[in-house]
Nucleic acid binder design. Structure first.
Lengths: 209, 209
DNA sequence: CTTGTGTTTAACAATTTAGTTAAACTTATG
DNA sequence: CATAAGTTTAACTAAATTGTTAAACACAAG
C-alpha cells in the first residue's frame, strides 16, 4: 500500500535509540555515558543497541555530528539577511538564546568533547560550516565598517563578545544557580531579559565612536 | 638542627603528587583521568600514589577544593577596594584574565565537575566563599546605583556579563582556535587586548543613561 | 651495621564496562 | 501455519581500571 513506509518515523527503534543516545551523551558526555544508560533511556536492552549500532563510538559520532550542527546552526542564516546591522544582531542573539534554552546541555557537551578530542573538528567535515560562518561573520563586520555603519574593530572581538554573552550562562548555569538560588523558571526569565541586554551591549560595542 | 624541617616543600613526594594530580585532573577531568597518568606525571608508580593518598576520590577532592578556590579567588579582594567603580572593574577584569591565562584549563574543569556533580558545591564548604563574593558584588552594585554613580540594573546581569566575557574564551578556546587558526601566542595577545575591551563594555553597561 | 621510612616491582583481586553470542520468544506478513 | 525480522535473556569474553599486597630494594640516621 502507498502508506506502508513509516508514517511515524519517531516510533521505530533505530530512531528511539538515536534520541536516547543524544539525551544521554549530551547530558553526561562521552566518558561518563554508559551503553546501559542509553538502552534504558530507549526502553530496550544492550544487545539490541549493538544490533542497530555496532559500537559506542559509532553512536557517539552521529550524536556529535548532530549536536555540533545544531550548535552553530542557528547562527548562519540571520547574519546575511537584508536588514540593518543592529536588527540582524538582535535577531541573531534572540535566535541563539532560544536555541540554547531548548538545548541547555548542548554547549558544555560540545566544548567539552572538542577540548578532550580536538580531532573531532580537524579531521571531520564538522569544521567546514563553522569556518564558513566565521568567514561570513568577518565579512559582514568588515563591510559594515567600510560603509561607516559601525566602527573599525577586530571582528574576532565581536565574535568573542557574541559567543561569550550568549553561550556562557548555559555553561556556567549550575554555578549561577548555586550562588543565586534561581529556579529553572527564573533562570529562563533572566535569559529572556538578557536577549535585549546582550544585543544592546553588542550594538554599543560596534557603534561608531 | 634548626634547618631540618623542609626547606623546599616543593620537592617532597606528597607535594609532587598533588601537583601532578592537579595537572592531570584539571586537564582531563575526573572521569577521564587515570591514576596511572598521575603517577607518571609525578614520576612515581601507582603503589606509591595509594601509599600517600588512599583513593582517587581523596586526591580529586583536594584538587577540586584548590581549583574552585583559585577560580573565584582573584575576584574577591579587588571589588571592595577604595577606588572609583570603573577603576575597580578594570582591575577586576585584568586580574581575572591574568589568572585565567595562567590556568587555562581551570574553567572547563570547574564548570564540568559542578555540572556532573552539583553536590560538590551544595554539600561542601566550597559554596560559602562563592556566595560571599556574590553578596559583596550585589552590595557594591546596589550601593553605587544608590549613589547615582551607575544606573539601576539587576546586579546579576552585571555579574553574568562579567563572568561571560572573562571566562568564556577559555572554555571555547579550542573552537576559537579551530575557526581562527590562532596560535597560543596570538590567543594570549587577543586576551590581553580584551582586558580593555571587556572593561569598557562593562563600564558602558552600568553607565547612567 | 641496623633500623625504619620511602620506594619499586610484580602480581593479584574486584569491579566496571564494551562488545559478542546463542537460544528462545514475539509478532507481523505472506 | 511458516517464515523472517525484531527483541529479550543470559551467559560469556576481553579489556581497562582501581585498589591491595608482599617482597625486595635504597638509603639516610642513629
Amino acid at each position: 500500500m502507498s502508506q506502508e513506509e513509516n508514517l511515524q518515523p519517531e516510533v521505530n527503534t533505530e530512531h528511539q535509540i538515536l534520541v536516547a543516545a543524544r539525551k544521554v551523551f549530551t547530558r553526561k558526555g562521552y566518558a561518563a555515558a554508559r551503553m546501559e544508560d542509553i538502552a534504558k533511556e530507549a526502553g530496550i536492552n544492550r544487545a539490541l543497541l549493538h544490533y542497530y549500532f555496532r559500537s559506542k563510538d559509532r553512536l557517539f559520532e552521529m550524536v556529535f555530528d548532530e549536536n555540533i550542527r545544531k550548535f552553530y546552526g542557528s547562527f548562519i542564516g540571520i547574519l546575511t539577511a537584508d536588514a540593518p546591522i543592529d536588527i540582524r544582531i538582535r535577531n541573531l542573539v534572540s535566535a541563539e538564546i532560544d536555541m540554547l534554552l531548548h538545548n541547555q546541555d548542548l554547549p558544555l557537551f560540545v566544548l567539552n568533547e572538542i577540548t578532550r578530542n580536538p580531532e573531532l573538528l580537524s579531521t571531520r567535515i564538522n569544521l567546514l560550516p563553522l569556518r564558513e560562518f566565521k568567514q561570513v561573520f568577518v565579512r559582514v563586520i568588515t563591510e559594515e565598517a567600510a560603509k561607516g555603519n559601525i566602527r573599525q574593530i577586530n571582528p574576532l572581538h565581536v565574535l568573542l563578545h557574541l559567543m561569550s554573552l550568549c553561550v556562557f550562562p548555559f555553561v556556567g548555569r549550575p554555578m549561577f544557580v548555586a550562588i543565586s538560588g534561581a529556579t529553572p523558571e527564573q533562570f529562563e526569565a533572566i535569559m529572556e531579559e538578557r536577549k535585549q541586554l546582550i544585543a544592546e551591549t553588542l550594538i554599543q560595542l560596534i557603534k561608531p565612536r
